[in-house]
Design a protein around this nucleic acid. Structure first.
Length: 580
DNA sequence: TACTGGTGCGCG
DNA sequence: AAAGCGCGCACCAGTA
């Protein structure tokens, strides 16, 4: 392998494909011309990739980042940049910036990209079992090269190649980061988690029954219901039990229960709370998801239509506040916890070039700025109104307050109102960088056309109108949520580069459980829409905090140029992830 | 026994 | 009873 002659020209891209136990690689120059091919045994891939990365810093082109990068990371190889064909295909196929006639928009195997839950153990490249790959996703080199060519063509002929390149680079960086997050894991203090569970639920019963405080709440509920055998976990049965004692609720949700005056209410709400903690994040979760002091959730980049990440397994995106104290830095390390204040309205201000809203956000809590502008009276009103504007509220306090925002910030509100109108009309909308919402379903469209026919029933018209409004709220939110996701990807990717540039620490200060690649340096440990947690050697914590802040500013400039808007962060350095 | 849909609740 | 977007997961009930 190492004896193969070195290419006379440095490749800008290296496209990888699989052929059984071998890996085929095509080295391309910047304009996509092939320089040479290599054939690498799977067992030698890590060393060849490490060498190529050091020599050329290419952008690696592959069908699906998890399939390749999990194995590279396990082998101690970190790479800088990639082009993920599956994720890029999904963006280009739907993007309104790409002409209809382009090859990438035709139906093909690259569309078939449903993710599946990752295996419990890191896959290796020798693993011939492909059951974990997205079904039907092409894996050989020729198909990867053909798709890569189609994608470059689609970008080049698009209405805005710059934005699409940026979006695909950010999306692909996200794919790398998702694998790195999983490889490094969230540092997790099992003893602290157990302490929290015992404090709230009571001791874990050795036989596997209910913990004491949960059992006590259950018996208080049954006593109030006057039924020692009442079933509390079946919604229909619980509803009937409540009706029998005169609690005439329509659902068993906490909000509705809380409005009732009856002795059953307090213990039932308590029971639901404890029961939820036990089933969602109890000892069983701990056994299944935390291993050797690390929680390793499965992130799914691009898993949400808007471009947000989803997660699969472990409920990574639902870590309850209650358990944040269990997120704990290794000895000698610290956590830098940062979240963006009001990311979505800030993004909206920039997209709409709404200088009044940007002014309200500058250097302060955006909602405080809205209050100062006189649009509404209190912070709570500002928040409710802003969320209502972005989500499409029409009733209640939120719906009532939105018109005031419309007067104060006509540009920003005009942007989301227009997105809603397009959605109601059956059109599509796009994010700032060009991710486009899916078109309406056949069922939706035919319901709309039927409703306009002369013989349409009142019920059909009503339903069509409701569906139209539903879709309008979706597209209204899509542009904001999706652009916020793009900003967050840019933030993450920039931060990743800044962390890489910090000096590694010596072995005496390392965190071996973070794995071969991350044991000696600050690394991203968690990401959730507008929040990041970095696990860092304590001596670098201040520099990491600066990096997080600088990366946010860089992301703003990358997307929105010199539009005068800042992305205010709350940054904390602590040994736990506890929020203020 | 395996599935699907409804409910409720955690997160942003 | 959440009003108003996007998710994942546990649990139960009904069906195949």
């Amino acid at each position: 392998m190492t004896s193969t002659p070195v290419s006379p020209r440095a490749p800008a891209w290296i496209v990888l494909g699989r052929a059984g136990e071998r890996v085929d690689a095509a080295l391309l120059d910047a304009d996509g011309s092939e320089l040479e091919r290599r054939r690498v045994e799977a067992s030698a891939l890590c060393s060849w990739a490490a060498e190529s990365e050091a020599r050329w810093s290419p952008r690696w082109v592959w069908n699906d980042a998890p399939r390749w990068y999990a194995a590279l990371l396990a082998g101690g190889v970190r790479i800088g940049r990639c082009h993920d064909l599956r994720l890029a295909h999904a963006i280009l196929r739907d993007s309104a910036l790409v002409p209809e006639s382009t090859g990438v928009r035709q139906a093909m195997a690259w569309d078939a990209a449903p993710h599946e839950a990752a295996p419990a153990t890191a896959p290796t490249l020798f693993d011939l079992d492909e059951s974990h790959q997205p079904a039907g996703l092409p894996s050989d080199l020729e198909e990867a090269l053909a798709e890569f060519a189609r994608q470059r063509e689609a970008i080049a002929t698009s209405l805005d190649a710059g934005r699409l390149r940026l979006l695909i680079a950010a999306e692909s960086a996200g794919a790398l980061i998702a694998e790195e997050l999983r490889a490094a894991g969230v540092p997790w203090d099992v003893a602290e988690h157990d302490r929290i569970l015992v404090e709230i639920l009571g001791e874990r019963p050795p036989g596997g029954g209910q913990p004491a405080r949960l059992a006590a709440a259950a018996s208080r509920v049954r006593e109030a219901l006057g039924d020692p055998s009442a079933s509390l976990d079946s919604q229909p049965k619980l509803l009937r039990s409540l009706h029998r004692v005169g609690v005439l609720v329509e659902s068993t949700s906490r909000w509705e229960l809380a409005e009732q005056k009856h002795p059953v209410v307090e213990p039932l709400i308590e029971y639901k709370k404890l029961s939820r903690l036990l089933s969602a994040n109890g000892w069983a979760w701990l056994d299944e998801w935390v291993d050797d002091g690390r929680f390793r959730p499965v992130y799914v980049p691009g898993g949400v239509v808007t471009g947000r990440w989803a997660s699969s397994g472990g409920g990574a995106l639902q870590l309850p506040r209650q358990l944040r104290e269990a997120v704990r830095a290794d000895p000698g390390w610290m956590l830098v916890v940062a979240d963006v204040a009001q990311l979505e309205p800030r993004v909206l201000a920039a997209m709409a070039s709404d200088t009044a809203l940007a002014e309200a956000a500058r250097g302060r809590d955006l909602y405080a700025g809205v209050v100062d502008s006189g649009a509404v009276a209190t912070r709570q009103e500002a928040k409710i109104a802003m969320l209502g504007a972005m989500y499409g509220a029409t009733t209640g306090e939120s719906g009532r307050l939105v018109p005031r925002l419309r007067r104060a910030y006509p540009r920003a509100m005009g942007l989301v109102d227009e997105a809603a109108r397009k959605g109601e009309d059956g059109g599509v909308v796009s994010t700032w960088l060009g991710r486009t919402s899916p078109p309406p379903s056949e069922e939706w469209s035919s319901a709309q056309s039927r409703a306009t026919e002369a013989e349409a029933s009142g019920a059909e018209e009503t339903r069509a109108k409701r569906w139209a409004r539903d879709r309008g709220r979706f597209t209204r939110n899509f542009v904001v949520q999706g652009t916020a996701a793009e900003w967050a990807l840019a933030w993450l990717a920039d931060l990743r580069g800044r962390l890489e540039a910090l000096p590694p620490v010596g072995v005496e200060h390392s965190a071996p459980r973070s794995g071969p690649v991350f044991a000696a340096r600050p690394h991203l440990a968690f990401f959730l829409h507008d929040e990041v947690i970095v696990h860092t050697p304590a001596s670098l914590a201040d520099q990491v905090a600066d990096a997080v802040t600088d990366a946010a500013a860089a992301a703003g400039r990358l997307l929105f140029g010199d539009f005068p808007l800042d992305f205010l962060l709350d940054v904390r350095i602590s040994d736990t992830a506890l929020k203020a």
